[in-house]
Amino acid sequence: MTDTPSDIARTVLTTEATALAQLAQTLPADFDAVVTRLLTLPGRVIVSGMGKSGHVANKIAATLASTGTPAQAVHPGEASHGDLGMITRNDAVILISNSGETRELADMIAYCTRFDIPLIAITKKPHSTLARAADHLLQLPDAPEACALRLAPTTSTTLTMALGDALAVALMQHRGFDRDSFNAFHPGGTLGAQLLRVSAVMHRDDALPIVAPDTPMGETLVVMSQKGFGVAAVVSEGTLTGVITDGDLRRNLDGLTGRTAAEVATANPRSIAPDALLSEALAEMNAHKIGALMVTDQGQLVGLIHIHDLLRAGVA
Rank of each mutant, 00 (worst) to 15 (best):
T154D: 02
A33T: 07
P144Y: 13
L249F: 09
I120L: 12
E280M: 15
G247E: 01
A65Q: 07
A29N: 11
M217H: 08
T36C: 09
T158R: 11
T215H: 11
D297I: 01
P269M: 08
L256K: 14
A184P: 00
R259E: 01
L310W: 01
P269A: 13
I120G: 08
V56A: 06
A262I: 05
A184M: 11
G68C: 13
E104D: 14
N98I: 06
L195G: 08
L171N: 03
G43D: 06
F31S: 00
G49T: 00
A62N: 06
E219Y: 12
D32R: 05
Q226R: 15
S156F: 06
V12W: 06
A265Q: 07
D32S: 13
V223I: 14
A121F: 10
A148F: 08
M285A: 05
L221A: 15
G314H: 04
A57G: 15
T158N: 13
G255Y: 04
D275C: 10
I272R: 07
M224D: 00
E280A: 15
G228F: 13
D180N: 07
V93L: 08
T239A: 14
N90C: 11
M202G: 10
S156W: 01
T158E: 08
L105N: 08
T102Q: 02
L167Q: 04
I272T: 08
A292V: 04
E219K: 15
Q173S: 06
F177S: 11
A276M: 01
N252D: 05
R250N: 07
A79K: 15
T241G: 09
L191W: 02
A21F: 06
T257N: 10
M217R: 11
S225F: 04
L119Y: 03
H174G: 03
S181N: 14
S156V: 03
R251M: 08
T11P: 01
A207P: 01
S236C: 12
P126D: 09
C147Y: 05
A262E: 08
R250P: 05
M50K: 03
L171E: 02
A133C: 10
A262W: 05
T11L: 14
R132W: 03
P5D: 06
L282G: 01
L84D: 02
A276W: 03
A21M: 07
A21E: 03
L27T: 05
D246K: 15
G258E: 05
V302R: 12
H308I: 00
M50C: 10
I122E: 00
T215S: 15
T88R: 14
V243R: 00
H136S: 12
I96P: 01
A92M: 06
T40V: 01
V231Q: 01
